[in-house]
Amino acid sequence: MNIVVCISSVPDTTSKINFTDNNSKFDSNGVQFVINPYDEFGLTKAMMLKEKYGGNVTVITVGDISVEPVMRKALAIGADNAVRINTSPLDSYSTASAIANYLKENEIDLIIAGKESSDYNGGAVPGMIAELMNLPFINACIGLEIENNTARLIREIDGGQEKVSTNLPCIIGGQKGLVNESDLRIPNMRGIMQARSKPLDVIEPESNENLVESNIFEKPDAKNACKLIDANNVSELISLLQNEAKVI
């Protein structure tokens, strides 16, 4: 089985978010980048499928050289090879086009992406890849089994879940549940050593067209200090919520 895992490199949630150039650019100074948490579940699932059915796991990231440490981490977790498409993603469309253009040339059984990336929470790239490559797309996936040429999946839907099936090749948007959190793989020493010699190919994109442009960033308004209410005066909380905040 040929599996491709799309990985985005995102700031760790605990990072302080700052901007430079008159608030027009994200300031990556001192920010720790990690594999997008939703993609980690997908990467581990890919490793498990490979162990069961054999095959190859490729990780792919659209980004400049600064994303390579995160890609090496994916290789240390167990991916066989990595492909970096050398351009800074401008919007979901430019990212999805870069990935789809590259993958069109390859024989692939399964593409695993994340439900969304934790920086922009766009949740748009996998669905766009699906359309560009004319593949079925199953989003918010919390279960996946492969049987011959069929993928059996469980996806989250509004207020519940749904069992679905489709033929390979297909693309999924994964999240927690695709594998258990306790099964998530972390790189060990041997993996880290091996990762150094695994192939990380750098590909130049055919084009880098974007449809949406970032203009400026701002921080949300600072919150007022928390109003504390005495535990013996719960009725005051209710009345504040009704009359001051007007939310109940």
Partner: peptide, 14 residues
Amino acid sequence: AFSSKAIETVVVKS
């Protein structure tokens, strides 16, 4: 953007 730690203004080019 950024898990609601920021707000981004974006412009449509298409």
